[in-house]
Simulated scan of single mutants.
Amino acid sequence: MANIQTLDPDASPLAYYGAELRRHREAQGLTQPQLGSAIFCTGSLVGQVETTKKVPTRDFSERVDAALGTDGVFSRLVGLVLRSQLPTWFQAYADMEAKATYISTYQAQVVYGLLQTEDYARALLTPGMPDDPDRLVAARLERQRILQREKPPLTWAILDEAVLYRKIGGPAVMRAQLQKLLDSSTNRWMRIQVLPFAAGEHASLDGSFNLLRFEDDPDLVYTEDLISGHMTANPETVREGSLRYAHLQAAALSVEESAARISRVMEERYGARP
């Protein structure tokens, strides 16, 4: 059983958050139940966050800032905490993704992480992650905040048609996920295309990949294998990735046709009209 007195604030962003929460709470003479009551949760949850048993959410952090008058300290810190919950091998990519001005992705199996609903993400992450999938779900949703910026990265997503049919989490989850794709496709910073089954053989039958572009840094290509991710700025690899992506765009349905295909699949397979 963890003891808050023995936690090292320098051990991790989560440990630092917990130590700071305890310090600010005690400075105002509040018990854990009293703070919990002020932010509409249990004192037990406050204690679990303080002892790193639970990862704080952004909503929790905003409520703490309001209750303790900490001028956004915890709202700023929670982003770092949630980023630290991503798999170690993925964190470098997430950092670069957050800096990119242009993201293009081809996904052969599932919806790209930045476009996933919470329920879809949880259904994906729960198998094989029995300890605490909520940590990874929260971290994935935190990644999506880059799309809420005043000037977000231009994001171009090509989804294999199989993604629309692969039932992740059940019909209700898929209805909501496909609706989110339709809603996202109306965003001026977002383009979504579907690569139809009719395309047959295509330029990336060997799997998904992402291309990142930046204002000042070299372009990157990112791929994943079974257990880790690989990122490279090798010019030849970037050039090959860009060429493949151009071929995929040419073979995919137009943005308008893609939205119609998503709507049709949602209605016919999951029983809903957008």
Results as ranks from 00 to 15, higher is better:
V221F: 06
Y222D: 04
F209Q: 05
A250H: 05
A139I: 00
A246L: 03
R213I: 03
T232R: 05
A172M: 02
V163W: 01
L115I: 04
T155A: 09
R166D: 15
D183R: 10
L114P: 13
P171R: 02
N210A: 13
R135K: 13
A199C: 01
I158L: 07
S208C: 10
L136I: 10
D160L: 04
L205A: 14
T186L: 14
R188D: 14
A121E: 06
D216T: 09
M129F: 04
R135Y: 02
L147W: 15
Y245H: 15
G207P: 04
L220W: 01
N234Q: 13
A138M: 13
G169T: 00
G241V: 03
S204D: 10
A203W: 03
E118P: 01
T223Q: 03
Q148C: 07
L248I: 01
A199Y: 00
F197L: 07
S185W: 12
R191V: 07
S184W: 14
Q193S: 12
A123H: 10
A203F: 05
D134A: 14
L243N: 07
K151A: 09
D131T: 04
E236Y: 00
V110I: 11
R166K: 09
P218A: 13
T155Q: 04
G200K: 03
A246C: 08
Y245P: 14
H247K: 14
L248H: 02
M231Y: 06
D183Q: 11
R175W: 05
L154F: 14
M174N: 08
T155F: 05
I227N: 15
L159T: 10
L154I: 05
V110P: 10
Y120K: 06
N210K: 00
Y222I: 00
Y112G: 09
L114G: 08
L141A: 08
F214M: 07
S204W: 15
F214S: 14
L164I: 04
V137T: 10
V110Q: 11
R122W: 08
G207Q: 11
L159R: 04
M174H: 03
R213V: 03
L243D: 06
A199S: 13
